[in-house]
C-alpha cells in the first residue's frame, strides 16, 4: 500500500513534481505513464527515497518514510523492491550473486540465501542461467534477474521503472505475466512506470498519466478506456486506421461505454436496423476485467442518424458519425 500526499520535488527553480497525490491499493498494479521528461522516474526515485522530496509525504504500508532515521529507512526499504530500468545488474557478479546481494546485506545465513536465490530464480524461470554473468544474458533475461533481485527481500511493494522497455512482445508478455502472478499469488502492490500502453491495458488495475510533474488523468484502467473525451483513453485504445467506406455509406466511430457490452451487438444491431454494417477497423479487448472496444464502421447514409445512435446506445456503445472524409484520412495517416 502506497500513499503519496502533496509530493513536490524541485531541482533548483525547476519543479519536476508538482503536488502529486497518488494512492495504490494493496495487491493492485498501478501504471504510471507520461511523455519523456514528465517526471516519472523522479516519482519512482522519490517513493523509496533515493531522491529526497522537497515537500510532501510518502507512506508505504502505513509508515511515513520521510521522517525516518537513516537506520529505520534502511529497514523500511527492504519492504520496497526496486526493479531498475535496464536492470542495473552488477557486471562482476553472476545472475545468482546479483539476486543474493540484498540477502547478503540482510546478513542471512549462506544456506538461507542459497535456498531463497534458487526459489527466486525458479520464479523468474532463470535457474538455468544462475551462473551466467550479465554480459552473457539477453536484455529480457537481465530484466528477469533484476525482478528476482527486487523480490529477494520479499517486499510487499514492488516498483519497476520501464521494466519492459525495448523487449520483444513475447518477453514483455512473460514479464507481465510474472508481475500479474506476484499480485495475484503473493498480494504484492506494484507500480510500473511505462510508456507502452499495451502494458497498461494488459496488467494494470489503475493508471495515472503524468505531464509536467502533475497527474493529469487518473482512474481504473477499465473506466479510463470508456471515457469519451480523454487523451489517456485515446492513447490506451487508439483509433485504428480505416479504409474509406463505399460511396453510399457514412462512417461511424464507436466506443464501448459500458463494461458489459454484449459481444453479439454487431449482428443484433444489423438486424434491428435492417441493414448491413461494414466493419472498417477496430480493437476489442478485455481491459482491467472489463470489455473495452473502439471501432469504425460504415452504415448506409439512408438511415436517420438518431436511429443509429439509439440502436448502439441500447447495446452500451457510444456512436458518433464522422462528418468529413478528411477526419478519417487524418486517422489513417
Amino acid at each position: 500500500m502506497i500513499e503519496i500526499t502533496a509530493l513536490t520535488k524541485r531541482y533548483g527553480s525547476h519543479t519536476v513534481l508538482d503536488n502529486i497525490d497518488f494512492t495504490v491499493e494493496p495487491g493492485s498494479i498501478a501504471a504510471i505513464v507520461g511523455p519523456s521528461g514528465a517526471g516519472k522516474s523522479t516519482l519512482f526515485r522519490c517513493v523509496n527515497l533515493l531522491e529526497r522530496p522537497t515537500s510532501g509525504t510518502i507512506r508505504v504500508d502505513g509508515q511515513e518514510l520521510t521522517n525516518l532515521s537513516r537506520r529505520e529507512l534502511r529497514v523500511a526499504r527492504r519492504a520496497i523492491g526496486t526493479v531498475f530500468q535496464s536492470a542495473n545488474l552488477l557486471r562482476r557478479l553472476t545472475a545468482a550473486q546479483n539476486v543474493a546481494l540484498p540477502l547478503e546485506f540482510l546478513r542471512l545465513s549462506d544456506e538461507e540465501i542459497h535456498r531463497r536465490v534458487r526459489e527466486l530464480l525458479e520464479r523468474v524461470d532463470m535457474l538455468h542461467r544462475a551462473n551466467h554473468y550479465p554480459g552473457q544474458l539477453s536484455g529480457g533475461q537481465r530484466q528477469r534477474i533484476g525482478i528476482a533481485r527486487g523480490l529477494a527481500t520479499r517486499p510487499s511493494v514492488l516498483l519497476a521503472d520501464e521494466a519492459t522497455s525495448g523487449l520483444d512482445p513475447e518477453t514483455t508478455g512473460s514479464i507481465l505475466r510474472l508481475l500479474a502472478g506476484l499480485r495475484d499469488d503473493l498480494g504484492v502492490t506494484i507500480v510500473v512506470i511505462t510508456h507502452e500502453m499495451d502494458v497498461v491495458r494488459s496488467v494494470a488495475d489503475v493508471v495515472a498519466q503524468i505531464d509536467h510533474g502533475r497527474i493529469v488523468e487518473y482512474g481504473r484502467v477499465g473506466d479510463v478506456v470508456r471515457r469519451s473525451d480523454s487523451a489517456l483513453s485515446t492513447a490506451l485504445l487508439p483509433d485504428q486506421p480505416a479504409p474509406r467506406p463505399s460511396a453510399d455509406e457514412v462512417v461511424w466511430r464507436l466506443r464501448y461505454a459500458d463494461a458489459t457490452v454484449d459481444p453479439n451487438w454487431l449482428s443484433r444491431i444489423s438486424r434491428e436496423l435492417g441493414t448491413d454494417i461494414a466493419l472498417l477497423s477496430g480493437l476489442v479487448e478485455t481491459v482491467g476485467g472489463d470489455r473495452a472496444g473502439r471501432l469504425t464502421v460504415g452504415i448506409s447514409a439512408q438511415l436517420p442518424a438518431g436511429k443509429v445512435t439509439r440502436a448502439f446506445a441500447a447495446c452500451g456503445i457510444r456512436a458518433h458519425m464522422t462528418e468529413t472524409a478528411d477526419e478519417l484520412a487524418g486517422v489513417a495517416s
Binding site: R78, I80, N88, L90, L101, P102, R149, T153
Partner: peptide, 8 residues
C-alpha cells in the same frame, strides 16, 4: 542505487 534501494 541498487545498494541504497535494497537497504544496504
Amino acid at each position: 542505487d541498487v545498494g541504497v534501494a535494497s537497504g544496504a
